[in-house]
Design a protein around this nucleic acid. Structure first.
Length: 497
RNA sequence: GGCGCUAUCGUCUAGGGGUUAGGACGGAAGAUUCUCAAUCUUCAAACCCGGGUUCGAUUCCCGGUAGCGCUACCA
């Protein structure tokens, strides 16, 4: 008889799914984990379900507090939140009870073999890797005797060795089947009594009433073991949905060691990504709304999300391998999406997000001023950080030094630049500092000097901005004001003389 | 090695027995413009290979190849 699950969806249409994100605190939150969190969250929200955060911290050796706070930092930035929170290390009693129940049913056995020291004899004689010979067949009496004598043991699942097929249906990968004979007698309890990931995870999933397990595809083959555990523990396995993995351009799975900080969520935060843009980007990796939509708000994503839209092939996060320049390393699509989301923000909202970034860069900026500058740079920045270089001249008293040759307009010379600036000084002393009057008077001045408007504007632009590429001139002058403008033109004239 | 999964432009993807194989990012060219952006237009760019099935396969099946995953008293 086959052990199977998931062939029928017994959940009624009205039942609320319960999903969980279960990171193990052994490192920072990386982008693949973030995407798993997001997909779970989206599924829960789009079905009126419950999102659960569970720290899978059964590996005492490798867990760190720093990792816990790093994961919370990342999740907090995403801003999605969750409904319930658990820590596996606080649920050990449940895990042991579950192990005991499985053992009592004869579906697990004690393995007194000393813990493996390494990868040793895995590829040895065929079949021997499946279990430790001798232990599986130990008589109950002998097993009890050695246990009573205090001999340490690991508890192993007694995987059926007949022709049994373990089956489940994956919402993404379809029907899955595997011969139990190809599954090793995996451990449930370590010799120190601590549960393994497989046991703790299944025991908790059952106990917490998890209805859908949405996780990385690296767990696809583990799921056969999990189905075995659920059944042995007398629990109905939940629905499964495995997500294609996020990989680096070289095809290998993302790792900080190999690929650097681009795999950490906080790197995106610190570079000035909008969380909603980052979420949008991650959603497009391995999932598609199938309608050519790309830029989507969280509401739109929630409405569009479905397990059917998830595809099966690994997705490359297309960052540049040598993580040299911070901005140049990100996937160009992520950067583009961020720019799209920036433009979708109201000026007030964008301004409020820009302010702390600019202040953190060392500029002393009033909120009111930021609000006036924001419309001038919003189409010129892709990451929030870009505001620092795009708008610096609005925030300083003294312009940083620039080459006076920059003041010379196209097809002109220093004499023309000087003439332009001197005329501009006169004009700007009298005109009202509003877009239209500035436009009109400066164009008129160009005509008087018999030069093109561009030749008139460029020296002024460089004089007030300190560089050639900048926001539109009249709006810029408006924000800068007469005093600053005239002072900077004065400086420019001095540079030319 | 064993077992499992996957394969459409450089990247993310849509599609699906008969299509000019669609979109997006990035790239190139052009338009617009006071510079830069933004915007608009255009262009280049893909069905891994081999067998079947079929009137017809990129699509369905099988095999190969490649990549990835699991194969721990890690998760």
């Amino acid at each position: 008889m086959d052990i199977s699950s998931g062939f029928t969806d017994t959940s009624s249409p009205t039942s609320r799914p319960r999903v969980r994100f279960a990171p193990s605190p052994t490192g920072f939150l990386h982008v693949g984990s973030a995407r798993t969190f997001i997909f779970n969250w989206l599924y829960a929200r789009s079905h009126g379900g419950t999102m659960i955060l569970r720290l899978d911290d059964t590996d005492v050796e490798r867990n760190t507090e720093a990792s816990v706070s790093s994961i919370f930092d990342g999740l907090k930035w995403l801003g999605l939140g969750w409904d319930e929170e658990y820590k596996q290390s606080e649920r050990l009693a449940l895990h042991r009870q579950t192990a005991e129940r499985i053992f009592q049913r004869g579906l697990a056995y004690r393995d007194f073999t000393p813990a493996h020291t390494g990868d040793s004899e895995k590829s040895g004689a065929q079949g021997t890797w499946l279990f430790n010979p001798g232990m599986r067949e130990l008589s109950p009496a002998e097993s009890d005797r050695r246990a009573a004598a205090g001999e340490p043991f690991a508890l192993r699942f007694r995987v059926p060795r007949d022709g049994l097929q373990v089956r489940f249906v994956d919402a993404v990968y379809g029907e899955q089947a595997k011969l139990a004979a190809d599954i090793e007698d995996f451990a449930l309890l370590r010799s120190d009594g601590m549960p393994t990931y497989h046991l703790a995870s299944c025991a908790d999933d059952a106990d917490l009433g998890i209805s859908h397990i949405i996780r990385g595809q690296d767990h696809l083959t583990n799921t056969f073991k999990h189905v075995l555990i659920f059944e042995a523990a007398g629990a109905k396995p939940p629905q499964f949905a495995h997500l294609p993995l996020l990989v680096a351009p070289d095809g290998t799975k993302l790792s900080k060691r190999r690929h650097g900080p681009v795999v950490s969520v906080t790197t995106y935060r610190d570079a000035g990504f909008l969380p909603e843009a980052f979420i949008n980007f991650l959603c497009l990796l391995g999932w598609s709304p199938k309608n050519d939509r790309e830029q989507m708000s969280l509401q739109e994503l929630t409405a569009a999300f479905s397990l059917e839209g998830i595809n099966r092939a690994n997705a490359v996060v297309n960052f540049k391998e040598p993580a040299t320049t911070p901005e140049g390393t990100f996937d160009p699509k992520a950067v583009w999406l961020n720019a799209e989301h920036i433009r979708a923000l109201t000026v007030e909202d964008l301004s409020a997000r820009l302010l702390p970034v600019v202040c953190a860069a060392g500029f002393n900026v009033e909120p009111a001023r930021m609000l006036r500058v924001t419309p001038l740079i919003r189409e010129r920045i892709k990451l929030l950080r870009d505001a620092v270089t795009a708008a610096d001249f609005f925030f300083v008293d003294q312009l940083p030094p620039y080459d006076s040759a920059e003041l010379i307009p196209q097809k002109g010379d220093a004499a023309m630049a000087l003439k332009v600036l001197q005329r501009a000084r006169e004009v700007l002393a009298g005109v009202e500092f509003k877009h239209d009057p500035l436009d009109g008077s400066l164009r008129a001045a160009a005509q008087e000097l018999a030069i093109k408007p561009g030749q008139m504007f460029q020296p002024i632009r460089v004089a007030v901005c300190g560089r050639k590429n900048a926001p539109p001139l009249f709006e810029t002058l408006e924000v800068l004001g007469r005093e600053t403008t005239l002072a900077r033109i004065e400086d420019a004239i001095r540079k030319l003389q």
